[in-house]
Design a protein around this nucleic acid. Structure first.
Lengths: 217, 217
DNA sequence: GTCTATAGTCGGATAGAC
DNA sequence: GTCTATCCGACTATAGAC
């Protein structure tokens, strides 16, 4: 037996991530989560102490997973911005970051993660701190730093612009129902990812151009 | 008695909108909704037939409310684009639309509505069609039409760009927990609304400039 | 470590008095 | 139209056998 060496703990975690992402903490039931993992509900109590412990464990798993996925790119950008702090480097970093984020956020395989994170954005629980400190704060920080180098400004304006840039991407996940209805797409796959990424890069160049001309928001 | 002439039906509706927005359909309880309106749960059955009927009635109320609020501006833009279809008019319309949308979406008084709509975006129910057909489809359509006039293109590219523009605004509502954590704001009030709107208008000009130069995404 | 059985709670719907 | 009382199903948690 045990053809796959995944511990029942891990099986429960992925099952839970899926359920919490789709239905939220309250609506997801421990019975369904355990059932999808082919084990009785009491396994959740045994491994995680209860529903809440399971939820927090999901958040930690996400933070680890995302750090592993975008951590290298993020670190590279942070180093580049520190070593060669000029507008050209910054613009390149922006393009790099948004390209990587597009792939990570729109990847269909990461859908359960996206859903889970979005729910935490809408109404944060103690799991929010785990996610924000682990990944999102760093991403926004890197975006704002790059924008600061391009515009020569830092502080509030750069941060607002960083969030707006990020929103251009996020909307395709968070408002997916409207996106599909409006574009006629049936799914957000490879082709759509390309179209979105190209639009984002175009906008980055447009905004950087205008920032470098010294015009400020 | 009856100092205010609001029918108990209306009181239930606003109470329900609040609860559904904060907790979602499943987690909001009819007991709490009725309790907040100071009436027994059976009133929901009487007026709306059940929890589901109450939920759909909320969606209809939102569609009516939003149509009343942005309907005029939307109609004006649609007329302007049809009568004087040139890039200058289109850019002006874009600025007008985003300014109006900023106020509507970030208005603290409209928070319950925002929450309700966002939940429908994440996982649509039959209420989604009511909301999309009533407002959102028209908004996105107007944005895409204006962009089409500026860039000389219509179709998929204009629609993707329209969604991206809208996302710059939406993110400040949908990811509010991260926005507050990252900016240090404690709330999104008048001052923050101005900062966001100025950034959006700056980006619109930047993107329009580049589109008019004939460069395409 | 893994399971079954059960306790205790809560939410939605309904019946029927007023 | 508005209320109280009650039913039934579904959920989390826990005790305890193996």
């Amino acid at each position: 037996m045990q053809l796959d060496k995944q511990s029942s703990r891990d099986v429960l975690l992925t099952s839970a991530l899926d359920a919490f992402g789709q239905h939220g903490f309250n609506s997801a039931t421990t019975r369904d989560i355990a059932g999808a993992a082919n084990m009785p509900m009491s396994q959740i109590t045994y491994h995680f102490g209860g529903k809440e412990g399971l939820y927090l464990a999901c958040a930690r798993m996400i933070a680890d997973h995302m750090s592993a996925r975008v951590g290298d790119a993020l670190a590279a950008v942070e180093v580049a911005l520190a070593e060669t702090p000029d507008p050209q480097t910054a613009r390149h970093c922006l393009r790099l970051l948004l390209t990587g984020l597009s792939a990570a956020i729109l990847d269909p395989a990461a859908l359960p993660i996206s859903r889970f994170v979005l729910r935490e954005q809408a109404d944060p629980t103690p799991a929010f701190a785990i996610l924000y400190d682990g990944v999102m704060g760093r991403v926004l920080g890197a975006l704002a730093a790059a924008i600061g180098l391009v515009s020569g400004k830092s502080g509030a304006e750069a941060r607002v612009l960083a969030i707006a840039l990020f929103g251009q991407l996020l909307v395709f996940r968070v408002a997916q129902a409207s996106v599909l209805a409006f574009t006629g797409w049936v799914t957000v796959g490879e082709d759509q990812l390309r179209a979105i990424r190209d639009t984002l890069l175009f906008n980055i160049d447009a905004i950087c151009d205008r920032l470098e001309k010294g015009q400020t928001p």
